[in-house]
């Protein structure tokens, strides 16, 4: 089931087109990673979904409801964690969560708020004002806030930006658990390794356009080359179209995922008795990303 469906979305700022005809879907129990360099249009897209910005063309549906026609209903089903830290001048952690929950019409959920505070290690700090919290605590609070009304769709705009390794791991774990509970999650990040580990599917946006969109593993297999390093016992003269490096006793092939290694070795005229060692380095999402940027 599509929890989020964005169709041909166009978002302009004056004559500048920030998002140009982007279409994507996020399904129940799925994490979609939205990647792209700075200024690619990720935040404009997210802002259009959470109605912080208006968009000019296209449509957005949340759980099958059109965002422009059923704006309040759609908003009530979206949890949003913004990129920027929010300070909340007057209130403490508990009050912030209580009022935020109230904005979504949830009043009788003190137990759930308590559960969230404990889950995000905020319980001890619940009486502290936001200004007294560390950066990591504030990020946890932002995440707790986005969940306080138990939304169907979660939009996390760079949730791990500027956090330490331990908190990052915690956030990953939370996000995975939420996915397993059936939430649909749209996740933006600049950490490609993180996206590779966490996201079921990835959409890469560049200059406002969606340039890659598929399952993470499929993107890697389709758009990257595996590096096959062959350490030889003695120097052998090899000629092959995928051979990229040929030094003393070492050969390096860059091969597509679909190519069988046995066949490659056969084509290169190499037998197992000539080989001392083989190392395989798979492609990564970073390679896909670089491929997109190089293709400009």
């Amino acid at each position: 089931m599509d929890v989020l469906k964005v169709s041909n979305l166009v978002k302009n700022y004056g004559s500048f087109c920030a998002v140009n005809g982007v279409s994507l879907k996020v399904q129940k129990g799925e994490i979609l990673g939205l990647l792209g360099p700075n200024g690619a249009g990720k935040t404009s897209l997210i802002h259009s979904i959470v109605t912080v910005e208006d968009f000019q063309k296209g449509s957005i549906e949340v759980c099958g409801y059109n965002l422009k026609k059923e704006i309040r209903l759609c908003k009530s089903m979206i949890g949003y964690m913004p990129q920027e830290i929010i300070n909340h001048s007057y209130f403490n952690v508990e009050e912030v969560l209580y009022y935020h929950s109230g904005y979504y019409g949830c009043f009788n959920n003190k137990d759930y708020i308590e559960h969230l505070m404990k889950k995000f290690a905020l319980w001890e700090h619940r009486k502290k004002r936001i200004i007294q919290l560390s950066g990591g605590m504030r990020r946890r609070l932002l995440l707790a806030k986005s969940l306080v009304h138990n939304p169907e769709l979660l939009l996390l705009d760079e949730p791990t930006s500027g956090v330490d390794v331990s908190l990052r791991d915690d956030i990953w774990e939370f996000v995975r658990r939420l996915r397993d509970e059936g939430k649909a999650i749209l996740f933006t990040t600049h950490y490609l390794e993180e996206a590779e580990k966490l996201c079921d599917r990835v959409a890469i946006i560049h200059k406002g356009e969606l340039v890659r969109h598929n399952k993470t593993i499929s993107l890697i297999q389709e758009f990257t080359l595996r590096k096959l390093g062959v350490q030889l016992k003695t120097k052998v003269n090899v000629v092959h179209k995928y051979l990229k490096l040929n030094t003393e006793n070492y050969l390096e092939f860059h091969i597509p995922f679909s190519l069988d290694i046995g066949r490659l070795l056969e084509e290169a005229g190499l037998s197992l008795s000539q080989i001392q060692d083989i190392q395989i380095q798979e492609g990564s999402l970073e390679d896909v990303f670089k491929d997109v940027l190089d293709g400009e």
Binding site: V50, T51, E84, I86, N87, H100
Partner: peptide, 13 residues
């Protein structure tokens, strides 16, 4: 100033 205007904007208010 504090940024929680975003909370109000994205809510069903």
């Amino acid at each position: 100033f504090a940024g929680d205007i975003v909370d109000v904007r994205v809510s069903p208010l």
